[in-house]
């Protein structure tokens, strides 16, 4: 199971990085999102993987998943959302002001 999760994280990070390195703003935004998905699972996994042990106190449950990374990831998800929303709008604004969606705001490579 660990191997599968690690592979998933690896693929998400790799795809995210590849997209981040593209020349247009929108793929970069997609890449940042994908990267942050991967990083969130990474952070989440630091509490190790648990099946059917939600961290909700009850008398019938013998053990619990580590709640702390979950709380951290929740914070990270929300902050990530704020950041992605900002970058999306920034990309929009840049497109409007620079009249191209190239990350460097140049038109010269603007050919299909």
């Amino acid at each position: 199971m660990e191997l599968l999760v690690a592979a998933c994280v690896g693929v998400m990070v790799a795809c995210g990085v590849y997209l981040i390195l593209r020349a247009r703003t929108f793929p970069v935004v997609l890449g940042l999102t994908l990267f942050s998905f991967g990083v969130n699972i990474f952070l989440f996994s630091t509490g190790r993987l648990h099946t059917n042990l939600p961290a909700i106190i009850s008398s019938t449950q013998p053990a619990y998943a580590d709640p702390l990374p979950q709380a951290l990831v929740l914070t990270a998800i929300v902050i990530g959302f704020a950041m992605i929303a900002f970058v999306v709008v920034l990309a929009l604004r840049a497109h409007g002001e620079l009249d191209t969606d190239h990350v460097d705001g140049e038109r010269k490579k603007d050919l299909p």
Binding site: L3, A6, G10, V13, V17, Y18, T46
Partner: peptide
């Protein structure tokens, strides 16, 4: 670069989880 980044992250995660 991206394969290195992804592979590195995955490897570190495996190292941690074990």
């Amino acid at each position: 670069l991206s394969v290195l980044a992804g592979g590195g992250t995955a490897a570190v995660l495996m190292a941690m989880l074990t």
